[in-house]
Amino acid sequence: MDLAIETRDLTKTYKAKKGKALNVVNQVNLQVEPGEIFGFLGPNGAGKTTTIKILLGIIYQTSGQARVLGKEPTDTDAHRLLSYLPEKPYYYEHMTGLEIMRFYASLFGIKDDAQCRSLLERVNLANDMNRPLSEYSKGMQQRVGLAQSLINDPKLLFLDEPTGGLDPIAHIEIRDLILQFRDEGKTVFISSHELSDVERICDRVAIINKGEVVQQGPLETLLVGGRIEVTANQCPDDLVEKLRGGERIVSAHLGRLIVDIPDSEEPNAIVDAIRAAGGTIVSVIPRRKRLEDLFLELVTQDDAAKGRQKRSMLEKSPPDQASIVEAEAAVEEGA
């Protein structure tokens, strides 16, 4: 079976100021499996929206390849099977929720009014579907957006910052909907710079920074590298030296000993050693790595690496972060 999304060395170059070329997306390789929730993560201006626009055929890559549902991104056959929820869209405000649904349905040649209504019901807009959008709250507008993105029962959904600017309750509603999509077998491609929601629902993520994918993989493997903290009391002072070694971090103070080991190491040996030395185990706590940690860790590392070898990112001279953000912003405004 085809990959839902596949890119190979996808690159998008813009001319920045003074004739400089700027790779907003740089050699991005993505493989999104059918049926998974794929998180496309990165700070603002990292190139997320640009990548999505290329995948939707709205803009064109400078080099590299992109396939969506096994087809060219500009292929309208692919468009029949996918949908896109842009970041903070404003729909035609003079139309009611139902009219908006009918409009988008008509673009697919769908005339089924019941389908429009049921989708609105599904996003909890059953009572508001005959009110004009100008009277909708932001959350309601976002839900209309979601409903319209479901009108063609898509196999692949692109959600660009789907929870941006929404209140916590709306966050949860949207998140639950996304989970339902997975249950229905849809592939969901979420771009986000917020991690707490996505962390819980993404099967796999790619982390993009300054146009380059810095990590990609299943959430579990990316989160490998958690630590275990063993705490004990009444430990003899010489125990500290015995336990040191490898990646262990050992600290002791007035007989209280804390040993911090990578989760790849068995804590039993430490526990045994403490007991043998007459210490009392207080707690053994595994600390799994959170996506935020990973994200921060990677982006910081990456920025530091880029700082050292900026030439890899730019063909002519180093960019500043501002100009990248600017270029990306320009792309979003369609300038």
Binding site: K53, L56, G57, I58, T76, D77, H79, R80, L82, S83, Y84, L85, P86, E87, K88, P89, Y90, Y91, Y92, Y104, L107, F108, G145, Q148, S149, N152, F158, E333, G334
Partner: peptide, 15 residues
């Protein structure tokens, strides 16, 4: 473009 509705339309099977 400003309202980003064009993206919802062009990502549909619309030439």
């Amino acid at each position: 473009i400003e309202r980003r509705t064009i993206y919802t339309i062009l990502s549909k099977p619309v030439q």
